Simulated scan of single mutants.
Amino acid sequence: MPGFGFDTLALLVVVGMAGPLLTAVPRLAIPVIIGELAAGMLIGRTGFDLVDTTDPTFVLLANIGFALVMFVVGTHVPVRDASLRTGIGRAVLRAVLVGAVAAVLGVLMAHLFDTGHAALYAVLMASSSAAVALPIIDGLGLDGPPVLSVKAQIAVADAACIVLLPLVINPGRAAGAALGALAISASAAVLYLVLRRFDRDGTRDRVRKYSKRHGLALELRISLILLFALSALAATTHVSIMLAGFALGLVINGIGEPKRLARQLLGITEGFFGPLFFVWLGASLRVRELGDHPAFIGLGVALGLGAVLAHGLGRLVGQPLPLAAMAAAQLGVPVAAATPGTEQGLLAPGEPSALILGALVTIAVTSIAGAVAKRGQAAAAR
C-alpha cells in the first residue's frame, strides 16, 4: 500500500465530496457525514483498501479533524441564550430520566449480546448530539419554549456523556481518565476566566482589529494553539480529544465567538479536516465483520432503537414526541467510542461498526422527527 502523500490527500478530498453531493438531493435528506462515512468505507478496510488508516500522518490529521469538529460543536451550544436557561430544570430532569432508562437497557443489551459493555451502551443511549440535532432544529425554523427546553436537554446530555465516556470505554483506566477529564475541565475554566478578562478590558477587541487590519487571523491562530494544547493534555491523560475540543468550544462560545472567527473555523473544519476525519473513520471500520458476527447487526439496531425509546420517554413528562425523538440523535459519543475501540482493540471485532450503525439509526429517526415537528408547528400556526 502506498505511503501517505498528496495523492492520498487528493483522493480523500475527492471521496469526501460524497457528503455534499448526497445532501444536494432534496428527497433523500441525507446528512453530510453519512456520505463521508460511506465514502470512507468504500476506499478503506470494508471496500478496496486503498488507504492505510494506521499511517501516523493520516491518524494525526484525522485527530485534528475530530478536535475541530467538536470545537465547532461546542461553539454552537447556545450557552449564552438567556431564554434557554428558563427550561434548564426540566431539561436536566429529562436527561436524568433518559439516563436511568438507558442504564437498564444497557445492562439488558450487554447480557443479551454477551459483551460486558453495559456502562458503555448506557452512555451511548443516554447521549445526544448537538452537532446533529441543533442544526436540524435551526434549519427547520423550530421555535417556542419546548424547543428551547430540548436544546438545553441536548446540551446537558452531550456534555455529560462526553465526560462519562472515557470512564466507561476502558474501566481499567477510569481513575486516570477521571483525573484527565478534571484537568481539562479545570484548564477550560481558567481559560474562560482569562479570556473574559481580556474581553472586558478591551485587549481582545484590540487584537481583533489589529489582526483584521493586517490580515493575520490572530484569533484563529490563538484558538488553534489552545485547541492543540488541550488536545495534547487529553492525549497525555488518555482522555478523548473530543472532550478537549468540546470544552474549548464552550469557552469561546461563553465569551462570545466573533463572526470572523466562526467563518474561519467553519472553513478549515468543514472544508478539509472534518470530512477527512469522517472519511478516515469510515475507512477504519471493518463493516464486513458485521457479516462474520451478525449478532452485532442486531446490537447496532438495538442501540439505535434503545436510544430513541429512552429519549422518547420524555413524553411522559410533557415533552412533544417529535422533539423527544430528535434529542436521541447521536454522533460524537459513538464516534469517540468507536475510534479507540478500533485503534486499541477495546471492543470486539464488529462492535465498533455496530456503534456507528446505532448512531445512524438515531440520525435517521431525528431527520424524520424533524419533518414531523415542522409540520406540527406549521399546522399550529395555521
Rank of each mutant, 00 (worst) to 15 (best):
H293K: 11
L281V: 01
D114V: 15
L281D: 07
P352Y: 01
R27C: 13
R196N: 14
L28I: 09
R315Q: 09
G304K: 07
V335N: 09
A189N: 08
G370A: 07
I137M: 11
A373C: 07
L303G: 06
V101W: 00
H76D: 09
G139H: 05
A133M: 13
P26A: 03
A152I: 12
S240V: 09
V287H: 07
S185C: 12
L9S: 00
E289D: 12
G341H: 06
F296C: 14
V301H: 14
L316T: 14
A18N: 08
I43Y: 03
D55Q: 08
S353I: 11
D49H: 13
G312L: 07
A217I: 07
E257F: 10
A381P: 09
V168F: 00
I184P: 10
A329S: 01
Q319S: 14
I363P: 04
A247R: 01
A373I: 00
M109W: 12
H214A: 14
V51D: 05
G274Y: 05
V301D: 09
A302T: 01
D52Q: 04
A364R: 04
F58R: 14
A302L: 01
D55H: 15
A295W: 09
H76Q: 13
R80M: 13
A95S: 08
L140P: 09
G332D: 14
A371D: 15
W280V: 08
A371Q: 11
R45S: 12
I368G: 13
V287A: 07
I34L: 13
G274L: 02
I222V: 15
G172D: 07
A38Y: 12
D114E: 14
T366V: 10
I255K: 08
V69Q: 08
L61H: 08
V96Y: 05
F4M: 13
L134S: 06
I356N: 02
V15A: 03
A327S: 01
G74Q: 04
K212P: 06
L164Y: 02
G87C: 05
G3M: 11
A337H: 00
L134I: 13
S353A: 15
F273W: 01
L360D: 02
G16D: 00
F277W: 09
G106F: 02
G358N: 00
A379P: 10
T269F: 08
W280Y: 06
R315P: 07
G176W: 04
L248H: 00
G65Q: 04
R196C: 12
T23H: 11
M109F: 11
A130L: 04
E343Q: 14
L148S: 09
D55N: 15
L226Y: 08
F277M: 09
G74N: 06
L224K: 09
L12G: 08
A247K: 05
L347C: 03
A283M: 03
G298F: 06
S129G: 00
D201F: 14
L216T: 00
A235S: 14
